[in-house]
């Protein structure tokens, strides 16, 4: 026993290092891909208000550019409204599958990592829940994974640990969309049959299968790079629609149809 104690004392430095490093690595590997839990909520609470302050300061310098973007978005929305009116669809008619949209603001974004994240200044009190999807100008951005009362953590499309269900064209095949960690505006679409002819500029939509986004929202467009052949399938480069480096305002979508489907799949007695 005494010899064991002497051994521990003699090698206390290396033992402490191994113990602490083990703890740190366990923390890292358990949270790196999908940060959830109490420590994330604590971080959101601690940093949230300071992030909001920093965001307000930086916003002052970007107002002109943002106004321009808002004008463009307004114009798009107006044209959508006109089309809807022309088709004679009553705007007030809401189906039970209609989605609710919560506007929010990004107060912090990390786009230089392989496991990027966004923090928004809306939380449980605004109706934000884990699992909801985020949009920017109609383009898919990411998914809410953790919320506190006033803030929420989102994992964007540009996160190497995430995969998204995507459809090529409105009636095309469904594949897996993921990001390889390199260019933040380029994602990869896999599992698309090799015989399918794909043209640059073709739209890639959300399939709606994951319950994060409603179907037919845009992920992005097929890039001009030639697809890579992989057995029976091809891998296609996708230009993502959302500008990840300049995200400011988002819309969080509560996909009610996915909730309905979940309820059907897990009926309560």
């Amino acid at each position: 026993m005494y010899n064991l104690w002497r051994l521990i004392v003699r090698h206390q430095l290396i033992l402490t290092f191994i113990l602490c490093q083990g703890f740190a690595l366990a923390w890292f590997f358990s949270s790196h891909g999908y940060p959830r839990g109490q420590w994330v909520r604590t971080s959101l609470e601690v940093q949230g208000s300071w992030d909001e302050y920093v965001s307000d300061m930086s916003q002052l310098t970007e107002l002109a550019h943002q106004n321009e973007q808002l004008l463009l978005e307004n114009a798009q929305l107006r044209s959508e409204l006109m089309k809807t009116k022309q088709r004679g669809i009553p705007l007030a008619a809401k189906s039970k599958f209609a989605n609710t949209v919560v506007p929010t603001e990004v107060i912090r974004s990390k786009t230089h990592l392989s496991a990027n994240f966004l923090i928004i200044n809306s939380g449980l009190e605004d109706g934000i829940k884990p699992g909801q999807g985020a949009l920017h100008g109609g383009f898919a951005v990411g998914k809410v994974v953790e919320t506190t009362a006033n803030h929420a953590l989102l994992l964007p499309l540009i996160h190497t640990g995430m995969e998204w269900s995507a459809r090529l064209g409105k009636n095309g095949p469904v594949g897996r969309l993921f990001w390889n960690g390199k260019d933040i505006q380029i994602a990869q679409l896999e599992d698309i049959p090799r015989n399918l002819v794909v043209s640059p500029g073709d739209t890639v939509y959300t399939s709606g299968f994951q319950g994060v986004f409603p179907p037919e929202l845009t992920f992005g467009f097929v890039a001009s790079t030639a697809p890579e052949q992989d057995g029976e399938f091809q891998r296609i480069q996708i230009d993502l629609g959302a500008p990840f480096q300049e995200l400011r305002y988002l819309h969080i979508v509560d996909d009610r149809s996915s909730q309905e489907i979940q309820d059907w799949m897990n009926p309560t007695p």
């Binding site: 890292f28 940060p35 953590l153």
Partner: peptide
């Protein structure tokens, strides 16, 4: 890590530097 949502990466690297 706790304040910047580093998730252990700063702890691990700082420990290595400390060694």
């Amino acid at each position: 890590d706790l304040t910047t949502m580093g998730g252990g990466v700063f702890t691990s690297s700082a420990l290595l530097m400390g060694a």
